[in-house]
Design a protein around this nucleic acid. Structure first.
Lengths: 360, 360
DNA sequence: CTTATCCATGGAAACGATTCCATCATGCTT
DNA sequence: AAGCATGATGGAATCGTTTCCATGGATAAG
């Protein structure tokens, strides 16, 4: 009663060979009466084929690996739900890892997936290309979601190339040494540009960008959107943690009291910005306007409700899982999903020079 | 290059038997020089033992199953992070399932875990005892987190017993037919009681409770805390979805304009309450006071910041994983973790009769 | 010097499934 | 009627690991 029935038990109870049982269960040929008997016995014994046995024989584990930085971040929660939804519809189990935005942990998780023979992975990468090399070399099918691996020190003298591109001012369409990995991303460029234009239209000129890890593309898009040589002091970065985000936001507000608008590159950053602003007695949007990346449920709860750049977190996860699980068919290199600027109440007109603003 | 090295490859390359390789790698006895050679070869071939092979042989898959209703709910995100953290420290992979608060999906996920031979599970249950019977019968080690299975129709004529207990007014210390499953829970009773006392201290008398699925214990605790026969109209429930939560909150406010305070039994409910209140032009806390279960980061972002009953989501997940993964040692039946009332700004004094309130 | 002990070692079985292949019976064609 | 094709069926190999057991050599004890 404690142990599960095996195929052998079923075979004996039905008076047939194990090969026949296997065939019946996986849709092979068998006579109707045999099939019926086997099915009946299997049901009666509550038999379930062992995925472990099957995986060993077929030399591959079905299933999907899912690596995200932090499930506490609502956006990644949405992304995970999307991936889970597709996996469920495909009947595949999901092995989850949370990396804490730490390349080392990510590396460990990759190792574990390798050991588990999970050879298809959806990841929000924290490490660089080198971190992912082992996975690829081992033949894993990987799809990145939400972002691409950071471009760290180039492994093999690609320096000049990269410098050149930076000098060009525009972000390169493809990273200097792209991994050959498909990705599902939000249209950061368009999202950021729309937000910046919106803010400029309200009269804002000193617009800051508050960035998180792994989203160089957003920062680049911001630089591009503000045009001219950007004021680099207005572009600050935090690591993944809430503390770091708060410190960055607070530091930004204090060091540059002349800024009048902030674009937060993620919901944790946005949260930090709201908190830091309140702490410093900056009113939103009277003193500072705020646009946040990610539309999360609580954005509406803030007062004023936050104007956001919505990206379809759930869809990103869903599409990524679909990409990695659906074998065959030519796989597109990269899928870019649209973003949408949702205007609520956290942006106001430029208040003008201090003291001469709209304050009645 | 496409396929991984097996133990046989290592054995051949090192000129030893596979048994020796296995022994070296799993810490058995071997001569120093053999050990060294094997280790060197293994490293050179980048050999990783296949978990599938091992699991088959040992007739059990290591690893932890994790079943939560919805990763989009920050509380479950925290809980999952906790469980993941412990699993990581134990070196165990985690198989994740999101049930959407649907017993049927939960049942399917249990079946999948069974197939995968994942025999240790942490679950936030959505189904009733019957849903979990198959898992238990199959010998799974299960630990419930955050809540217990709802007590549905009793399978075997326990009706009278249950009725009796309901008539008694107090919730039973143990459910009528408890599964023999340990659990890690927050101290709902104390949390709710503290919140209700706090509200009463502010003068509130008509206090409503907005409950989610699976938390009968909280509702019971609420009934107990308000004492006397509770006004059942002031106790409403929603299913897990945001829409349902909003509908419930909105309906509550509209049908009972005389209420002056609400206890929301979860962060999704709290969110709905804030939204519904705003929509109906009820100001918090002037018109209605609000206490929410769960301390989530955005509680501080609301204005006014939300007074909450904080429960340690991360710890709940961590402890549950520890309980299920740490073999041996007498396992406690149930762990109850403390809650804490965090007073922020969403509760005010009772405004008195309409028009005679504290409005200056 | 002989015998008992101990340890390193490798062969082989086992885990639970899939799948190739041989076997056998049946029905059809010529 | 004989041969051939077809289809159902079971035996056995296989996947990669762990673990039991036998073997053999070396060392210690008598």
């Amino acid at each position: 009663m404690d142990k599960r029935a095996t195929i052998k038990d079923v075979a004996e109870a039905a008076g047939v060979g194990i090969a026949t049982v296997s065939r019946v269960l996986s849709g092979g040929s068998a006579s109707p009466q045999t099939r019926e008997r086997v099915l009946a016995v299997a049901a009666q014994l509550d038999y379930r084929p062992s995925a472990v046995g099957r995986n060993l024989r077929q030399r591959r584990t079905g299933g999907l690996g899912l690596l995200v930085p932090d499930l506490t971040d609502t956006f990644f929660g949405q992304l995970a739900e999307g991936a889970l939804a597709y996996a469920r519809s495909a009947g595949e189990p999901v092995v989850l890892g949370s990396t804490g935005d730490d390349p080392e942990q990510e590396s460990e998780m990759i190792g574990m997936l390798l050991e588990q023979s999970v050879d298809r992975v959806v990841a929000v990468p924290s490490g660089d290309a080198e971190t992912w090399q082992p996975a690829l070399r081992a033949g894993m099918t990987v799809v990145f979601a939400d972002r691409l691996p950071v471009e760290g020190a180039d492994p093999a003298g690609e320096g000049p190339d990269r410098d050149l591109m930076l000098l060009d001012g525009l972000p390169p369409a493809r990273p200097s040494r792209p991994l050959d990995v498909p990705a599902v991303l939000a249209d950061d460029r368009s999202g950021i540009r729309t937000a910046v234009r919106y803010l400029r239209g309200l009269g804002h000129r000193r617009i800051a960008y508050l960035g998180g890890p792994g989203h160089d593309r957003r920062a680049e898009a911001f630089r591009e959107a503000v045009g001219a040589p950007a004021d680099e002091e207005l572009i600050v970065f935090a690591t993944g943690s809430r503390d770091s985000a708060y410190a960055a936001a607070s530091g930004l507000f204090q060091s540059r009291p002349d800024l009048s608008a902030v674009v937060a590159g993620g919901n944790v950053l946005g949260e930090a910005a709201v908190l830091a602003a309140r702490e410093l007695d900056l009113r939103v949007p009277r003193d500072v306007s705020l646009v946040m990346y990610d539309d999360v449920p609580w954005a509406e709860l803030c007062s004023p409700p936050l104007t956001v750049i919505a990206q379809p977190g759930r869809d990103i996860g869903y599409r990524a899982a679909e990409l990695v699980l659906r074998t065959g068919a030519r796989r597109p290199r990269t899928v870019v999903l649209p973003t949408e600027l949702i205007i609520r109440g956290s942006c106001g007109p430029y208040p003008g020079r201090p003291g001469a603003g709209v304050r009645a």
